[in-house]
Design a protein around this nucleic acid. Structure first.
Lengths: 142, 142
DNA sequence: TTAAGTGCAAAATCTTTGCAAATGT
DNA sequence: ACATTTGCAAAGATTTTGCACTTAA
């Protein structure tokens, strides 16, 4: 995982601003995808809601973050792996949505087995969302 | 697929109303999951938007319809297979979202291969959304 | 008859747009 | 200096809530 946020921004022709660094920092610090509401509450800086929307959209367009829709239809964002580039994200996104703590984990190590598409259908990207209870929550309710 | 909508309603302790029958009819007539906006536009009856929201929620709670979130985070509804009952839906939902016509197809015949969850994580339901171009759209842009 | 369902009005969210002020390069 | 980014105000869209009227059983 690339941790030099300044570089990430510069490589994408984006100006380095405190807002953008804060957003990247917070998202990268979590092992789960992060929703707009969570960011809005937990960011260590006063950021206008509109700016946050725009920042996230920009990052997604540039391929810095990828967007995952969770079970409630809410957009969550996570750092893209390095092979994501602007306009062309990694094709397979696997996530785990905990029904108790609502954390959305990225399962990058998961590999999807080959399968056959129905005739005439062309697959561009695969989005797998498994829901259940995460290791943390299972530990707590012994 | 059960087509006697009256029976479906009665079996779920719901009153048989014209609104509910229209909603079920339209959703069942499509081979794709249907969004609230689509229903609102295409239903053959004046239905208040609020009533539509409530109807869909009721159907989902009773296990008559299941909800699928598409790539845009919009809720879409499709008839549940018979093994769905109130509060306990079928565990695996596989759908195909066409990026051109935005139709959301149910892939009931698709079977998910067995796999290993990371330690401590318990899977309750699996949601697979494949996006790409559907047979119809592929045919049209030769 | 009466509990459930519906429609209307209004509120609460969520997301986008336009524009002027501020900021990074 | 200048294009980009941000904040504010406001508009638009989506979804929910409360309450009185209507309707199926």
């Amino acid at each position: 995982m690339e941790q030099n946020f300044q570089n990430i921004l510069q490589q994408n022709q984006l100006k380095v601003t405190a807002t953008r660094l804060s957003v990247l920092e917070l998202i990268a610090s979590r092992n789960a995808a992060t929703s707009q509401p969570y960011l809005e509450k937990n960011i260590n800086k006063e950021i206008d809601r509109v700016t946050l929307y725009r920042t996230l959209r920009t990052f997604e367009e540039k391929g810095i973050l990828h967007k995952v829709i969770d079970l409630n239809g809410t957009a969550n964002y996570a750092m893209c792996s390095d092979n994501c580039t602007a306009g062309h994200h990694h094709d397979e996104h696997f996530h785990f949505n905990c029904t108790q703590c609502h954390q959305l984990y990225c399962m990058n190590d998961f590999h999807f087995p080959p399968f056959q598409m129905p005739a005439g259908f062309k697959s561009q990207s695969i989005n797998l969302l498994i829901s259940g209870t995460c290791a943390q929550c299972n530990k707590m309710d012994n």
